[in-house]
Simulated scan of single mutants.
Amino acid sequence: MSALKVLIADDEPLAADRLVALLDPIEDLERVGIAEDGDEAVALAQAHKPDLVLLDISMPGQDGIEVARTLAASEPRPVVIFVTAYDRFAVAAFEVAAVDYLVKPVERARLHEAIERARIVLANRQPAAAREDEGARWLTEFWASDLSGLVRIAAADIDRVSAERDYMRLHVGERSWLIHHSMTALEKGLDPSLFVRLHRSAIVRRDFVTGFSRNASGRWVAQLADGREQPVGRLYADRVREMTGR
């Protein structure tokens, strides 16, 4: 079995040193670098093609969530384990398919458990060609924080998505939840036969749109099933033509 190539990304030298000390006794493991910020993490990953990235979330430049999204588009795609001082990013971490989420200070046994999980994921992963043959895979669910813990939200149940700075708000009926995501990533991940982007800060489920009208400026406005109106951005006017055939 070839050695597991591991990249560490953490802007705190003491935290990185602790990970090094915990990793050194593990057999069949090769450490390929230590990045001190998100941009360096991406550069080192592109250069060394690690199997696993131990990734902090709060870092200069790209944060850990952004780095994970970037690495998800690379080939071969490394698995990611987040190692952070905060537990509030757990939902965002699993949205980018992290295999585990460790809170500092990391315990040796917990790290070893996470690495074994990463080995299993890598062993069961299909080659890129096989994944492409299966066709596109759209996002089917989200996990969002709630007062009671975590809530599963089926993508097909979402009426619309609105942007709030670095977060996206998922609207389902009268309720809504915030997730740490980007509008561009959601547009690419949601099934385009079900959802349409109508504004730089809004995605709407197609069957939630009941009609279109023009405002005083001549711009399109979507009429929604809940009685709300969604302005259509100038750059997205072609979506109206695509939906209505006019």
Rank of each mutant, 00 (worst) to 15 (best):
G149L: 08
A93T: 08
G149K: 10
V96M: 02
L122D: 06
A97D: 15
S148N: 15
D100M: 09
A90E: 14
R110D: 01
R131T: 01
I120T: 07
E134Q: 14
G135W: 07
G135N: 11
V80P: 09
E116K: 13
K104Y: 09
E132Y: 12
A123Y: 05
V99K: 03
A130F: 01
F82R: 04
S145H: 12
A114R: 06
R117S: 05
R137D: 02
Y101F: 14
A129V: 11
K104W: 11
V99P: 05
P76F: 13
P78M: 13
E95R: 12
I115L: 13
A93M: 02
N124G: 13
D100S: 12
A144L: 12
H112N: 13
E75S: 14
V99T: 14
E75F: 06
A109Y: 10
A123C: 08
E116M: 11
A144E: 13
F89N: 07
D100Q: 08
V83P: 00
F94W: 07
L139P: 05
F142Y: 15
V83E: 05
R137T: 12
D146R: 10
E75K: 05
R125W: 00
D133N: 14
R77C: 02
T84S: 06
G135F: 07
I120R: 07
D133R: 15
I120G: 01
F82H: 04
Y86N: 03
A128F: 10
R131M: 12
A114L: 12
H112F: 02
E141M: 04
T84G: 05
W138D: 01
Y86R: 08
A72Q: 09
A114V: 15
W138N: 07
F94S: 03
W143F: 15
D100W: 03
D133H: 09
P105H: 11
A130L: 14
R108K: 13
A73S: 09
N124K: 13
A90N: 07
V96A: 05
V80G: 10
W138A: 02
R131Y: 00
V121R: 04
E132N: 11
L122H: 04
R88N: 14
S148R: 14
A109S: 03
K104I: 04
L111Q: 06
F142P: 03
R137N: 06
A136T: 14
Y101H: 08
W143I: 09
G135R: 00
D100T: 11
